[in-house]
Simulated assay, not measured.
Amino acid sequence: MMTEFEKMINGEHFNSLDLDLRLKREAARLACAKYNAHPSKGNLRHITRLFAQSELVVIEPGFQCDYGSQIYLGKGVYINFQCVLLDSAPIHIGDQVLIGPAAHLYTVDHPRDAAARASGECFARPIHIGNRVWIGGGAKVLPGMTIGDDAIIAANAVVTRNVAQGERYLG
């Protein structure tokens, strides 16, 4: 029988209230808290060691993630202050991507049925962000979205559809 974590990483419905998942989120919160309390290159390792991939990244304080294990960061990614990456499914971010302050990337979603939501049932869809993308401050990227290379996402935009290469998305 598959664990809830295995269901989650395999793209199946999973129970977010599962003890193992709650402990994994707590470990990620503690790693983020260590860095956010005392931001330094040395303390950044508390966050980046959670990630599936990261190379030459800058992450400003206030960063939060669910697990970290499904975050893939390309070279030269800059994540500004107070960003949130909910990584119940993979988040792939290409090279030289700029993410503005308080931007949020959500892979997790919840059933529309109230009883299913109350039970803790969730599902997640991956987010793919191409190279040299600029995501403005306060933008929200919803589950399952793909943003093409060189695209610009306006500040405070809510990305509800895929964004083509080079497109300026105003939300």
Rank of each mutant, 00 (worst) to 15 (best):
M145W: 09
G148D: 06
W134F: 04
A139M: 10
I135N: 04
A155Q: 11
P143D: 08
A151C: 12
A151M: 10
P126A: 10
I153M: 03
T146G: 05
T160C: 12
I153L: 00
W134S: 09
A151Y: 10
T160N: 02
I147P: 05
K140R: 15
M145L: 03
V158S: 05
A154S: 06
V141D: 01
G138Q: 01
R161Q: 13
I129N: 07
G130A: 02
I153G: 07
H128G: 10
I152H: 03
V141A: 06
V133E: 08
L142F: 03
D149V: 08
G148K: 06
V158M: 04
N162P: 11
G148I: 10
I135Q: 13
I152L: 01
G144T: 14
G148M: 00
L142A: 09
T146I: 00
R161D: 06
T146Y: 15
L142C: 05
K140D: 04
G136N: 12
K140T: 15
A157R: 13
I127C: 01
G138S: 01
N131Y: 11
P143I: 07
I152G: 01
I147H: 11
A139F: 08
A155L: 07
A157N: 12
A157P: 11
H128V: 03
V141P: 03
H128L: 05
N162C: 07
M145Y: 04
I129T: 10
D150F: 03
G144C: 14
R132D: 15
N156V: 05
T146H: 15
A139I: 03
